[in-house]
């Protein structure tokens, strides 16, 4: 495991923001760390970087204790937390050169990174004049400068337009192909579902789910989607016949899928009781709704 935390907790005063978190991030994965705003994602990330001292629990990165191996571990991590930290009065290249000086990395690596994030043409422009997308890309270049084994990105696509989001996604995929591990937080599952291999879902500081994207799909139970001329009557009829209803809307209702035969039975029942059925089929919830359900259930 690249990251392994056990019983990680953190409080701001009386308010507990992270509760007994046990993360497991395997090497070579893109781990999507998901949760609504204020769920404790940034706090967790700051603990992983030793910016906040964990109240309780332990953090192991590269199988070493973070507290006692801080510098050695930080050497192998690149991070971008919230908004990119950029000196606005320096050019993009100077920002990189300054960090390169601190990390003892050569100028060639700086030029390579500018090239990677497609900022070579704007390298000598003041960073204060960069667009949000360019700043974010510079932030990623800064995070990649020391050729880290683990890249920690906190909401890297926040505030970006669709093109910017695609560019950041492509960058992450490229990084993982080089054998690195990416830990990326987001408040949208759709953001990471296409590229993440693993997912952790956090809400109110608690880990609600952790596993591969496939595990997440597996807990996504199928439903029968029924569209009739009168959803309320249909729902009442099914309830009287001991069929669970999970959702009723004006134009459709949902009931858990049991078997194909059951779909036929429900159809018959509705038709025999004078309800017109416009459509009836088996459906999976999309992952975004599943994510919302998981975070709401807390």
């Amino acid at each position: 495991m690249v990251i392994r935390t056990q019983g990680l907790s953190f409080s701001f005063g009386n308010q507990q923001v992270v509760r007994s978190l046990s993360l497991e991030v395997p090497a070579g994965s893109i781990y999507g760390f998901l949760g609504p705003n204020g769920a404790g994602k940034t706090t967790t990330i700051k603990m992983l970087l030793n910016l906040l001292q964990a109240g309780e629990g332990s953090i192991q990165i590269f199988d070493k204790d973070l507290q006692s191996n801080r510098i050695e571990i930080l050497k192998q991590i690149g991070s971008l937390i919230e908004q990119p930290a950029i000196y606005q009065h320096l050019t993009g290249k100077e920002n990189l050169l300054n960090r390169a000086m601190l990390l003892q990395v050569g100028e060639k690596r700086v030029n390579d990174m500018l090239n990677l994030v497609q900022l070579t043409a704007a390298a000598n422009k003041k960073a204060g004049q960069y667009s949000l997308g360019m700043k974010q890309r510079l932030g990623i270049a800064l995070a990649l400068l020391n050729d880290p084994k683990l890249l920690v990105l906190d909401e890297p696509t926040n505030g970006l337009d669709p093109n910017g989001i695609i560019e950041i996604h492509e960058l992450m995929m490229r990084v993982v192909k080089e054998g690195k591990t990416v830990f990326v937080s987001s408040h949208l599952l759709s953001e990471v579902e296409k590229m993440a291999t693993h997912v952790g879902i956090i809400n109110n500081g608690k880990l609600m789910f952790q596993g591969t994207i496939q595990d997440l799909q597996n807990i996504n139970q199928p439903h029968i989607y029924i569209e009739t001329d009168n959803s309320a009557d249909a729902a009442n009829l099914l309830k009287r016949n001991h069929i669970d209803i999970t959702e009723v809307e004006n134009d459709y209702l949902l009931t858990p899928f049991v078997s194909k035969q059951q779909i036929g039975d429900i159809n018959n029942l509705l038709v025999q009781n004078g309800i017109t059925v416009f459509g009836i089929n088996k459906q999976h919830k999309d992952l975004e709704r599943l994510f919302l359900d998981i975070t709401k259930s807390n």
């Binding site: 030793n50 910016l51 510098i71 930080l74 991070s79 930290a85 000196y87 601190l102 020391n146």
Partner: peptide, 18 residues
């Protein structure tokens, strides 16, 4: 102020430097 303005305290303190 140069660090406050650029929001760079977090990067300074996550460098592999004590």
């Amino acid at each position: 102020n140069i660090e406050h303005k650029a929001d760079t305290w977090k990067t300074l303190f996550s460098l592999p430097i004590s």
